[in-house]
Design a protein around this nucleic acid. Structure first.
Lengths: 346, 346
DNA sequence: TTGTACGCGTTATCAG
DNA sequence: CTGATAACGCGTACAA
């Protein structure tokens, strides 16, 4: 008997297909069920049979088929789907990293997809992930309307929305305390003695951006800041645009001595521009990001990875009680984190 | 008949379980097969029956179960597994972003896991993904020995290794032209008139780091550089360590006028430190990264996203001919990308 | 200790 | 046009 014939009992099988329990059973001359018992952890099998089966399994490279196992009654998948805008963006990558880390602690795997800020694409992705019977879904919303998920949610399927709430759907969400954060930034600059303060923000159609601008306006009023010493710049969407906007600002308003950047990409552009200029300007970023301390700018203690972990955590809680109607809208509080000035400079 | 009873034909079902074809069939009073026909695209079904079935499907929120479908004979999964070290690292995130983008064009989904530079963890992850019957696997190797995958590879399972080749396994891989890249960096600095050149590199146990240091030594010799004007600093693993190393270098060797940073994290630290100092030093980074131009440093045109796309591309090619014995070891050529000095500065 | 029958949700085959 | 029946790979329940 050559090794080749032993390679595969089920000789009709597609060579690409993985060996099955039936193959192992056939080779070792036992029933499928016995082979199954051995592979699972030898619940009452004679040593001799077990050895025989293990040897056969090894020979063909048998590997249990989780798909088939999970198809069985009631068994839950251990796949969680996550949809973000763009994996190449450090903020979303951090979000995914945090979620993946927490989920992997629970033995859950993450299937990741990018919606590219496209609501239609996102809808298709959600559909595809639901067809795959993922256990739950973590979504950074790109769409305008999530009412179509109402039925799934009602049935007990677990959704968690991150960074922004889902319009027209009652569901769990984790967002950052945008208002509190902006107020903290502003107060920090005031305490640092800044007199003329600017905020540079993203496209106003983005929920977080408009929230932050609104918060700034309110805080500005309550802090009794002189309107003439306050500058609101919005629709700045990339680091490059932030560079341009900052240069323009510093040129037109040389008295500006404090800038709030409403996200990480903007902060990178602002920070680098200010550092390269002769102006003395304090910069504070809403987002924490890897090179913030290198750029010597203060940030809120608001780590996307933490937000990602929190979203995973909330999903896990929801798993415990899928049909409970009380939806949590957790708001991640942020505090100020001031970078010491000793890590940079020759 | 109330709507509630219509909600679900199979009343004994777990409320968490998705409705099945059987549910739809029962409600609409047709056989399962007919319901299946309608859901797939009405291959020979009367309009009347089709409408009835569709209505029922809508009512219960039926959604085809891909798991069950893929269990069928020969049907291939459209899941691809990818294992990287750390999703929070922009280089790996870029790699994943590129792969995901290319795969999604082919309707393939990506399941992403992080090995955290831990060979044992990586091995378990590979095992888990194989159990899930992914279609193929893209891996940035953390391990020392991949011979255990020999049987899977021989059976025709598709692996692609990225950034570093897989030790002890004949398989496809995509790496960067480390030697050519370093030579390009060095020649760039020489052309820019640099006389005293340093290279700051990662931990030497990392394959790419040692490759790059070796390349530097060789290129240095062939360029007839004076040994006294060349500095090799290694085992620098983070941006912070790069800051420290750069400061020390500039302090001890004030004549240094050119620095090669062997990866993105190091480049961020070096770039920021140099910018903050009074020293005139040209910096060039092996990796391209989002804020390189803000830091005003030259880089190779070596985008992790491109590398990710290439790895996906190679996997797709391998799918076409799974058992072919010829393995491709594609080397991504890199050219110089010099940032104009007009994007930064007040 | 080991084996047989059945079910998970779907589709292919072959009858009606 | 429509419907039983088998099969995919595995585990549970029940025999032998």
């Amino acid at each position: 008997m050559s090794v080749t014939t032993l390679d595969r009992a089920n000789s009709t099988a597609n060579p690409l297909a993985h060996p099955t329990l039936a193959d192992v059973a056939a080779i070792s001359g036992v029933s499928i069920k016995t082979a199954s018992r051995v592979m699972n952890g030898s619940e009452q099998v004679s040593q001799k049979t077990a050895d025989k089966v293990k040897k056969a399994a090894n020979l063909v490279g048998y590997r249990s088929n989780r798909i088939a196992r999970e198809l069985r009654v009631g068994s839950l998948s251990n796949l969680v789907g996550m949809i973000i805008s763009d994996l190449a963006n450090p903020f979303y990558a951090g979000l995914a990293a945090g979620a993946e880390e927490r989920l992997s602690e629970e033995g859950l795997d993450l299937i990741l997809a990018t919606a590219r800020d496209d609501g239609d694409r996102e809808k298709k992705l959600i559909e595809s992930l639901l067809e795959r019977r993922v256990r739950g879904l973590i979504i950074v919303p790109s769409g305008e309307d999530y009412s179509h998920l109402h039925q799934e949610r009602k049935r007990g399927f677990s959704f968690v929305f991150v960074d922004r709430p889902a319009p027209y759907l009652d569901s769990d969400s984790v967002t950052v305390d945008n208002r509190g954060g902006i107020t903290t930034c502003l107060d920090y600059l005031i305490e640092e003695g800044c007199k003329s303060i600017a905020i540079i923000a993203d496209t106003t159609s983005i929920w977080t951006a408009s929230e932050r601008i609104e918060a700034f306006k309110q805080a500005m009023l309550s802090r009794k800041l002189d309107k003439g010493n306050v500058h609101i710049i919005s629709n700045v969407h990339t680091s490059e645009e932030a560079v341009t906007a900052t240069r323009k600002l510093l040129k037109e308003r040389a008295d500006v001595d404090g800038i709030i950047a409403t996200n990480d990409l903007i902060a990178m552009g602002v920070g680098q521009t200010v550092n390269a200029s002769k102006h003395k300007v304090k910069v504070v970023s809403f987002d924490l990001f890897p090179t913030a301390n290198l750029l010597n700018i203060a940030t809120l203690d608001h780590d996307p990875q933490r937000l990602g972990r929190m979203s995973a955590e909330m999903l896990l809680r929801r798993f415990e009680n899928p049909t409970a109607r009380s939806f949590s809208t957790e708001i991640m509080k942020v505090s100020m984190k001031i970078n010491k000035d000793d890590s940079v400079g020759a």
